[in-house]
Design a protein around this nucleic acid. Structure first.
Length: 273
DNA sequence: CCAATTGTTATTTA
DNA sequence: ATAAATAACAATTG
């Protein structure tokens, strides 16, 4: 489920625990979410550490603890962060639990495409600092976008938007939303997108990121109770999985097909080939 | 039983 | 050699 704004939503949930000590850490050590790390080392390292603050970028979260401890979480396809009572009894997919006096911070992930990362040191880890520059940052210029499309000229534009090295945080629904707003057929080859269209695409990339962060994660205001509760009805988001879904702009029937290996939704009228 | 799912990565193909 | 397509990962739901 989680893309850019949804990741920020879950990070904000756990932020209620900033400033509080983690008394104990519980894990399901053999599970796939701990691939490439050592669950025991994480548990030993974080027990007794204070959660200082956190950040989200792309689809990655970083939690900073005192003593130079850093916890990374990626939610994969089905991951979630929850806040439960201090005496919460873990359920089968709750692979990581941080026990604080007032609450339990829970990472749950049934499909386990997500993962946990851990680092000890004075500076943030490489897997954090090496993330691509955000779409809402200065380096994401129309020229950089155009250059990237040229390099990926033969791939469908939909597949290109899913490439994290240039579009960090964009996932399946955001890619469809961006293309719908930019009026580009998702099957178009990236190299065939003209200069004026590139400019539009650049603007819509930024608009969808900003809008998702505001409406989906409540950035700039209070955290919504539920994910997606504040998404405007005008967004394709709400209609893409509806049976017989219609384009919110022109009311044409929406079309679905696999593009770039992913199920894609678009409006054949607004997004002509 | 079959196919589907908002992600990433290793492997295969072009 | 590089880029694009495909398979695999795992659990659950329709």
């Amino acid at each position: 489920m989680p893309e850019l704004a949804e990741v920020e939503f879950y990070r904000r949930r756990w932020s209620v625990g900033h400033g509080d000590c983690v008394r104990a850490v519980e894990t399901h050590p053999g599970k796939r979410v701990f691939r490439g790390t050592d669950a025991g080392r994480i548990a030993r390292g974080l027990a007794g550490a204070v959660l200082l603050d956190s950040a989200a970028a792309a689809k990655q979260m970083l939690f900073r603890f005192d003593g130079g401890r850093w916890l990374g979480i990626h939610l994969g396809m089905s991951g979630e962060l929850r806040v439960e009572p201090a005496d919460y009894v873990a359920r089968p997919h709750d692979h990581l639990r941080l026990r604080q006096d007032a609450r339990t911070l829970v990472f749950t992930d049934p499909r386990m495409f997500g993962g946990v990362l851990y680092h000890e040191g004075g500076n943030p880890p490489d897997w954090w600092t090496r993330l691509a520059p955000p779409i809402l940052s200065a380096p994401f210029t129309p020229a950089a976008l155009a250059a990237f499309l040229r390099r990926r000229a033969r791939a469908p534009i939909k597949a290109v938007l899913l490439m994290q090295e240039r579009f960090p945080g964009v996932g399946n629904w955001m890619a469809d939303e961006i293309l719908w707003r930019a009026r580009l057929d998702p099957r178009r080859r990236a190299g065939k997108v003209g200069p004026a269209e590139v400019r539009t695409l650049w603007r819509q990339c930024r608009l969808v990121c900003r809008g998702a962060l505001r409406h989906n994660a409540g950035v700039g205001g209070p955290l919504p109770e539920e994910l997606n509760e504040d998404m405007p009805a005008s967004w394709l988001f709400h209609h893409r999985w509806e049976r017989g879904g219609r384009c919110p702009r022109c009311r044409s029937g929406l079309r679905h097909a696999a593009v770039g290996g992913r199920t894609t939704c678009w409006c054949p009228r607004c997004q002509p080939r």
